[in-house]
Simulated scan of single mutants.
Amino acid sequence: MQTQHDNGRRNRMIAAISIGKKSLKIDDEIYRPMLERLTGKKSLKLMTEDQLSLVLDHFKKALGFVPAPPKATTKSNTKPKPRSPAASKIRAIWITMHKQGFLENGSDRALDAYCQRMTKTTNGQGVQYLVWLDNWQAKSVLESLKRWHFRLMKEHLEKCHAGAPLSQTYEVLSKYYANTKF
């Protein structure tokens, strides 16, 4: 009886052979007889792991197939989760400001630099990444970003639209600004 580990290895070998067949552009008229000559079987599914290994070795050594290295599936490839729920609001406002033309660079790197500047008083260097902000720091950065965004929207509306609700809250002004056509 084969274990799940064996089946996984077997499936990876079958996949590698299939990829090799495709990348080497081997058609069935050549492929099936080659399998039968090497292992006595015409189908990969009927082969043992040793037979699959033999076919894969033949693809590599005789035909020059070079399989791609497996993709890394470590946690280092995933973005870390933010420590504060306010981080998503900060990112949303940052992106909105960029789309509205208030920011030249709307990248995550630029946002991280902003967060670091806003938290410099915490430890002299600031918190390097948005996702590292704790709740208190994130709320402080969020309020700072909202005040900055409010100021920019208000200045723009004062120039372009008389009668805009300029003395309102951030949320009201933000909604009004989003619905205004420029």
Score class of each variant (00 low, 15 high):
S107W: 05
Q168K: 11
H5W: 11
R32I: 15
H161F: 14
T169I: 06
G163C: 07
G101Q: 06
W136L: 12
I14V: 10
H161E: 15
V55D: 01
S107F: 05
Q2T: 15
H156E: 14
K99T: 13
L152Y: 03
C160P: 01
W94Y: 02
S88A: 14
A87M: 03
K139D: 12
N135I: 09
N179W: 04
S43Y: 13
G8E: 15
K75F: 14
K181Q: 14
F59A: 02
I95R: 03
L111I: 01
H161C: 13
N77S: 07
I19M: 05
W136H: 09
C115N: 00
R12H: 07
V172I: 15
E155F: 10
I14D: 00
S18F: 05
N105D: 15
K75T: 12
F182W: 12
A164F: 05
M47E: 02
Q128H: 09
T122Q: 03
L166Y: 03
N123L: 06
Q100V: 11
A87H: 00
K175S: 12
I95T: 08
S88Y: 09
E49D: 14
Y129K: 08
K42Q: 11
R10A: 03
D27C: 08
A162M: 08
Q125V: 13
A110L: 06
L44Q: 02
K89M: 15
T122A: 06
C160L: 14
K89W: 10
L173W: 03
W148N: 07
T180Y: 12
S167R: 10
K99C: 10
G101L: 10
K89R: 13
R151D: 15
G101P: 05
L52R: 00
T121K: 09
K60I: 15
E36Q: 09
G124F: 09
A72M: 09
S43A: 12
T96P: 03
F150P: 03
A86N: 08
N123E: 01
A110G: 01
R32P: 03
P67D: 06
R147E: 12
R12S: 13
D57M: 09
T3G: 10
P33D: 03
S23C: 07
K89T: 15
Q116D: 02
H156R: 12
I93Y: 00
I93H: 00
A92Y: 04
